[in-house]
């Protein structure tokens, strides 16, 4: 399936990746090559086959409801790009 330029712009936006207009044709071409490879899947006979999400058949283990964490805000915020008064700063969020 051929990918169109506008598809790439759309998924780049969904993924919040800056791809400039100048880059889009080359990116589209490369992604199309990968999609061609992926297209081989369509020929596989998978009627009645259960999708496999995990390599093991195990079920989720449940954790006892216990508080195990202490406040390590200073450690964690030391590596943050922008903080003030204990808050992470980002450009204004508009609702």
């Amino acid at each position: 399936m051929a990918l169109e330029l506008k598809d790439v712009a759309k998924i780049a936006h969904l993924a919040r990746l800056q791809v400039t207009d100048a880059e889009i044709p080359a990116v589209t071409q490369r992604l199309s090559t990968i999609l061609e490879l992926i297209e081989q899947l369509q020929a596989a006979p998978t009627d009645g086959i259960e999708p496999m999400a995990h390599p093991t058949d195990a079920v989720q283990r449940l954790r006892p409801d216990v508080v195990t964490e202490t406040d390590r805000r200073n450690d964690y915020q030391r590596i943050a790009p922008a903080v003030e008064d204990g808050l992470y700063l980002v450009p204004k969020v508009i609702e």
Partner: peptide, 28 residues
């Protein structure tokens, strides 16, 4: 970036069944 874009595309509305779900069946 290429892989993020491919993955985003494979999960996006209208393609999930043809790509992601199909790949999971092939995985089986």
């Amino acid at each position: 970036k290429r892989r993020i874009l491919i993955g985003t595309y494979a999960l996006s509305a209208g393609y999930y069944d043809a790509y992601y779900l199909k790949a999971q069946k092939v995985r089986r």
